[in-house]
Amino acid sequence: MIEVDNLTKAYGDRLAVNGIRFSVNRGEVIGFLGPNGAGKSTTLRMLTGYLTPTDGSIRVGGIDAISNPIEARRFIGYMPESVPLYGEMRVDEYLRYRASLKGVRRSQLKARVDASLQLANITDVRYRIIGQLSKGYRSRVGLADALVADPPLLVLDEPTAGLDPNQIRQVRDLIRGMAGQKTVLLSTHILPEVESTCGRVLIIHKGRLVGEGAPSTLRVAQEGRQALVVEARGARDAVDTLLKNTRGVRGILDTVVTEQQGAAPLLRYRLEVDSSEVAEAVFAAVAAAGLSLRELHREQTSLEDVFASLTTADAAAQHAEPAPATTAPADSDPKPGASV
């Protein structure tokens, strides 16, 4: 459905998008993931023809979108970020206008508007003036606009921004429901959104594609780096040595003294381990040494860790298959896991 090669957008010397290449098959739901300012919106704007690329090629539905932009745009239902709308129009009028602009026949106009209102779940505000609607409703008007001409490809730039949790779930359900019938390309910086809706993820950072794959495989790619959180009481040197010498422990990632209490402070370690089974060995070692153990759990690699390791430091220079960064960022909280 989409084939993008060497897509580049330069603003003066700054490359907002730098040689991106990817393709999307019919019926796929793809998440475009990246921190703010990574180049997501710029890429989507080039795909939808709002911006002309500096370099590279775009094919939408087999049509060259650069030499034949109008034909290519017929395939696309686009919902821009921040959803600009004409505040003075009523929802119904706006959707009729958009449908007729997109070439929906007069005879089908009403049916298409009805269907898109229903899909976006905004039939109740049909005759309201857009300027008076809440942000949640406005963004769903944008979604209805994207759907109104029944295009095979939906490009949604942060479709759940500004929605409340219930509306977010509705939109996700709607997107999931379209998988197979429509191709969906959505951008977001919210990870659970990708994990819950997308079959494949493209991670973009500083204008480059730094990771690609199913949410689950991306997580697996990081599984080599397992961490174990241990909180034990004892003299620091003794505990350090004990843990380092436990079989399967590769090293200590960091140590925090959580409770200073004479000779036996409470220490919290993050250990890099070979596998999650090492937890048992750690427990046995600590118990054998007669130390008390307050907590022991595996730190689960979430997509957030993948994302963080791909989009921090020099990861931008790497491509596709990510090599795990050596340390996780300091702000990554330990994930709740099996505590002993």
Partner: peptide, 14 residues
């Protein structure tokens, strides 16, 4: 200035 030019120019019109 209101941004509505984006939906306008991404519709299949010249």
């Amino acid at each position: 200035s209101s941004g509505t030019i984006e939906p306008l120019l991404t519709a299949p019109v010249s």
